[in-house]
Computed example of a mutant assay.
Amino acid sequence: MATINPYLNLPGTTEEAFNFYKSVFGGEFLAVIRFKDSPGGSENVAEADKDKLMHIALPIGKNILMATDSIGEMGMGYKQGNNYHVSINTDSKEEAETIFAALSAGGQVMVPLAMAEWGDLFGWFTDKFGISWMVSYSPNRPQ
């Protein structure tokens, strides 16, 4: 069964925000990936943005709060109203394909569902109601 987690876009304040959230909720970060450390990140990101966070994840109970610094080079550009996504993590490739196709129908696909450079099946779209969704399947995640 798919899990749903919030995914935040922040205007360069992700690290500060997540250190604050960690102080409130406790726990340890599951992932901290800077743009400079991502595959292809060094070539595609401005020098001033290389130390910003491409991805961070903090477990809160059975959920995971995730985020990125919205930088212009990645096409997101922070503005109020686009600062979140609903992230769906599926248990199978087939489930990811089914959910992506159904939810994106009538919407706008920004990133078609495909294998991403970090090893997950990933896609991103806005549904016909204006809600931003990310669908992922991690084939190497322990089940």
Rank of each mutant, 00 (worst) to 15 (best):
Val32Thr: 15
Lys36Trp: 05
Phe125Ser: 05
Gly119Ser: 14
Lys128Leu: 15
Phe29Ala: 02
Ser42Ala: 15
Asn63Ile: 00
Glu16Ala: 12
Ala46His: 08
Glu43Gly: 04
Lys62Ser: 12
Ala17Lys: 06
Met74Pro: 00
Met54Gln: 11
Ser87Gln: 10
Met115Thr: 13
Met134Leu: 11
Ser38Lys: 02
Thr14Leu: 10
Ile33Phe: 06
Pro112Cys: 06
Glu28Arg: 07
Leu10Asn: 13
Ser132Leu: 06
Gln143Glu: 13
Phe20Trp: 15
Trp133Gln: 05
Phe122Gln: 03
Gly72Trp: 06
Pro39Trp: 01
Ala2Leu: 05
Ala102Pro: 00
Val45Glu: 01
Asp120Leu: 13
Met74Glu: 04
Phe122Pro: 02
Asp120Glu: 14
Gly26Trp: 06
Met74Thr: 15
Glu15Pro: 00
Val86Gly: 02
Gly119Gln: 07
Ile99Asp: 01
Val32Ile: 14
Asn89Gly: 07
Met76Gly: 02
Gly41Met: 02
Leu53Thr: 06
Ile60Gln: 00
Met1Ile: 01
Glu15Asn: 11
Val24Met: 09
Ile88Trp: 14
Pro11Thr: 07
Phe129Thr: 08
Asp37Lys: 10
Leu8Gln: 04
Gly61Leu: 11
Asn9Cys: 04
Gly81Ala: 10
Glu43Pro: 03
Ala96Ile: 04
Ala17Glu: 08
Ser23His: 05
Ser132Ala: 15
Gly130Glu: 10
Gly41Val: 04
Met134Val: 08
Leu103Thr: 11
Ile88Asn: 09
Ser104Phe: 04
Ile4Asp: 02
Ile33Asn: 14
Ile88Cys: 04
Met134Gln: 15
Asp37Gln: 02
His85Glu: 12
Gly130Leu: 09
Met115Gln: 15
Thr90Glu: 06
Lys79Ile: 05
Phe18Glu: 11
Met1Trp: 12
Ser87Arg: 02
Lys79Thr: 15
Pro59Ile: 04
Glu47Ser: 13
Val24Tyr: 12
Leu113Tyr: 14
Leu103Met: 14
Pro142Ile: 07
Pro11Glu: 05
Gln108Thr: 13
Val45Leu: 06
Gly77Thr: 13
Tyr7Glu: 03
Ala96Thr: 08
Asn140Trp: 01
Asp69Trp: 02
Phe122Lys: 01
Asp120Ile: 12
Thr14Cys: 15
